[in-house]
Design a protein around this nucleic acid. Sequence first.
DNA 1: GGGCAGGTCTAAG
DNA 2: CTTAGACCTGCC
Length: 280
Amino acid sequence: MSTNIYSINKPNNFDIEQIFSCGQCFRFNRTEEDPNAFCGVAFSKYIKVTQDSEKVYFHNVTQEEFDKIWSSFLDLSTDYSQIISSFGDDKVLSEAADFSSGIRILKQDKWEALCSFIISQNNNIPRIKGIIENMSAKYGEYIGCYDGKERYAFPTPKSLYEAGIDGLFELKTGFRAKYIYDAASKIVNGEINLDDISKLPLDEAQKLLETIKGVGPKVALCTLLFGFARHEAFPIDVWVKKILEKYYSQSVPQHFYQKNAGIAQQYLFYYERCINNVFI
DNA sequence: GGGCAGGTCTAAG
DNA sequence: CTTAGACCTGCC
């Protein structure tokens, strides 16, 4: 395999450690050779990313691929420092944002985000990752051997539909097998079109996703935040619920219902897990 | 061996 | 509308 490296000047608010280990994605990991490098598959392409104080390096990536896929994936056109300064009057959130200031909300594939967060329910991150890798190896397209491992694209809705509930259950998805199957079948038969959902107001988009079995408010909003780059989506999981009770007991501040609430949510989630020594 | 993990479904008041 | 229980699995 060729080893193209495309590099850019390091953007502000950009830290691959935080981006890939803050819990927003499940297919990126440290490489075995270099614990400061992260690698993974997205949009049917494998990449390895490294950074130093000056630059960010995209290994196995051409400029064309960078412009077409990775620039958008990494949300490089958003000014995160401006968003962080807009949190100024909230001391808890400002501290969390300062701690997590290298996070960028990835714009992942819509279907992959939906399917991944269905799998995430009542589950832990190492096991979620394992299920997704096994699922990709069994039902995803083979894209090549990179850095010593066979790499596979995330499976299409059609391939998981054809796997059937039994095939999905064999991946140790447990009670989630029927949920993944329902999502895949609603997309295959055209009942749900994810590209059309992106044009809807947030509450309508959420309601439509919740017509899928096993998709409630948390999974729907995570899908919209991480798969559709809907930065106003504010998913409330057990951690965020705990944070709201711990720091905001009186009332939930208004900015958690506004345009960058989802980014605030991710800062708080990552911060609270780190201070509780929960590492991925 | 019971509890837990980035929730949601179902049944019952 | 709100709220217990149940739920696959694997690691502690």
